[in-house]
Amino acid sequence: MHSDLAISTQGLTKYFGSKAVVRHLDLNVPRGSVTGLLGLNGAGKTTTLRMLMGMLEPTRGASQILGTDSQHLRPEDRARIGYTVEGHFLYGWMSVRQCECFQRDTFPRWNSSMFAETVRRFGIDPSDKTRVLSRGQRAGVSLALTLATEPELLILDDPALGLDPVSRRALNETLLDFCDGGTRTILLSTHLLDDVERVADRIALMFAGRLLVDTTLDDFRNRIAAWVIDLPPATRAIESIPGLINSRPRSGRTIVTVADPDQETEAAIARISRSTPESVPVSFEDAVIAYLSRSRDGQSFLVARGA
């Protein structure tokens, strides 16, 4: 077990019935990092987080969170972890202030000023019932309730879901303030790539239950490349490109995105292209979407098209 890891999983696997929704996950989240967990709906992100939090028993494999087995988290372990569930669940009959009291009474540490500041940032009246709050305000309350416990590790399950731009900015600012000291860890599951690019320094990308990417943001960017090539019609030769992530048509030509390109990759591209391949820059968003655009059954659109 690595002491510098806030989260570590070894072969973590979860089946629902006969369907594997998480497959042999080996995820490592270093302490002090902000990791964006990316993936399509159904990729297994929420299931992974629920297993990490001990809310769901894995079919196979193990996971440790802050050095403790996820399935045997003690109250004192949970006190060190902040966790917001998907959808920002709150008890609708409670006022914001009652939510604060309930949370404060069930956690040993409570930072009232942080709670007040976070709530203020989202423009929330503490006397309001949570059922009358907007989605963004509920997200603010949920985040405030979690951050005020001063956790060492923050796990957020799609916190920006359905938020307006102002609320998203408030959310991101809050997260940045929270981890400003560099000692706190955040695992952020989201679909919003620009938020990840702003907040995170690492990404983990899941696809069909598998972990395809687990590295730093810079490393990820550096190891993705793309070319624009001319392909003969109805060819399957593109499949021979090593590290091909995705290909997509653009203006009669084809953009191919590859991982860890080397000379062999470039040679393969040059071999199948009818003209000189043109290297194009790849943004973070393009790179992530290249991964996410692969079909949900594990095959690329390219193969499906070729068939």
Binding site: H2, D4, L5, G11, R23, H24, D26, N28, P30, R31, G32, S33, V34, R169, N172, E173, L176, C179, D180, G182, R198, V199, D201, R202, R210, L211, L212, V213, D214, T215, T216, L217, D218, D219, F220, R223, I224, P242, G243, L244, I245, V258, A259, D260, Y291
Partner: peptide
């Protein structure tokens, strides 16, 4: 055994702590 890699996996080895300057 871990699922067979398809050549597109990107993993950082070894792990590094790359705290970067955050900006909004």
């Amino acid at each position: 055994e871990a699922p067979t890699n398809s050549g597109i996996e990107i993993f950082e080895q070894p792990l590094t702590r790359t705290r970067r300057a955050l900006s909004v």
